[in-house]
């Protein structure tokens, strides 16, 4: 198949970017979207042009590294899919595809389609952990965790941190990402000791990173590759309210 591509090219963080048009022949329909970009880059390198930079790692849909906005939708037309798991059979011959980086105030563009998602790392390091004493690993069955609880915690833990929720949200809110981690840990007995501080700290960091307010449009859940539920956000609200208004000891 033949494709007409319009790709966002930006030299670095400070430069102004623009959409550049490319034509790509002989695209195999079984190629993944990233393989199509690899093919384009081969063509660009052969022609002594600068290749298009984009993030990727596992290409199995589980690491959360890849992610671009394709025809105005984060991770492209397929719902609940990462960019690497999107295949060219979803597109038509001679189609024009517009590719842009994830955009939000909290996600500055580094180059071309690469964005700085360091804000997510800083949110996690502000409280998305469980403090344990070093030494021997404790016996695994000392603290029983019910099956339902373990499954619910795992549903939240399935977030791969790709940032599609932020790119999809009209407010550039990181509520789904932050709430998935807060909920996962709030459910587990090992992490309950720090739940109040965690909610307060992670939300404070989220705000500091210039993400917007969640207005419950629920778009994030629809586009999330892992289908993380928006009820995690409601749970985060509960955790925040509990820590702020119900607990007297801070």
């Amino acid at each position: 198949m033949k494709l007409y591509l319009k790709i966002w090219r930006q030299k670095d963080r400070v430069s102004e970017g623009k959409l550049v048009e490319y034509t790509l022949d002989n695209v195999n329909t079984h190629m993944s979207f990233l393989e199509m970009l690899d093919t384009l880059n081969n063509q660009l390198i052969t022609n002594n042009e600068e290749p298009v930079e984009f993030d990727h790692d596992c290409r199995e849909g589980i690491c959360g590294q890849c992610g671009v906005v394709i025809n105005g939708i984060a991770h492209g037309p397929l719902k609940n899919t990462t960019t690497c798991q999107l295949h060219m059979r979803e597109f038509k011959d001679n189609e024009t595809i517009l590719i842009e980086p994830f955009r939000a105030a909290g996600f500055p563009v580094k180059k071309d389609l690469k964005v700085d998602r360091g804000a997510f790392d800083r949110i996690i390091s502000s409280g998305g952990y469980v403090s344990v004493n070093t030494g021997q690993a404790p016996e695994a069955n000392t603290i029983p965790v019910g099956h339902e609880t373990a499954e619910a915690a795992f549903d939240s833990a399935a977030c791969i941190g790709c940032g599609a929720c932020v790119a999809t949200c009209k407010n550039g809110s990181a509520a789904l990402f932050t709430s998935a981690k807060i909920t996962q840990l709030a459910l587990l007995p090992q992490a309950k000791e720090e739940r109040d501080q965690r909610a307060l700290k992670m939300i404070a960091q989220m705000d500091k990173e210039q993400f917007g307010h969640c207005s419950n449009t629920e778009a994030c859940e629809v586009e999330c590759p892992q289908g993380i539920s928006v009820l995690n956000i409601a749970r985060m609200n509960y955790e925040y309210n509990r820590a702020s208004f119900l607990k007297f000891k801070k």
Binding site: K6, L19, I73, E100, A105, V166, H213, T217, A219
Partner: peptide, 25 residues
């Protein structure tokens, strides 16, 4: 604040994943 925080795209089809009234409160 949200307007500044949210991204703007040359082609925006994000509307497919939410109700129009939830985006236009």
């Amino acid at each position: 604040i949200n307007r500044k925080a949210g991204g703007h795209y040359s082609t925006d089809n994000r509307g497919r994943s939410s109700k129009w009234y939830s985006r236009n409160m």
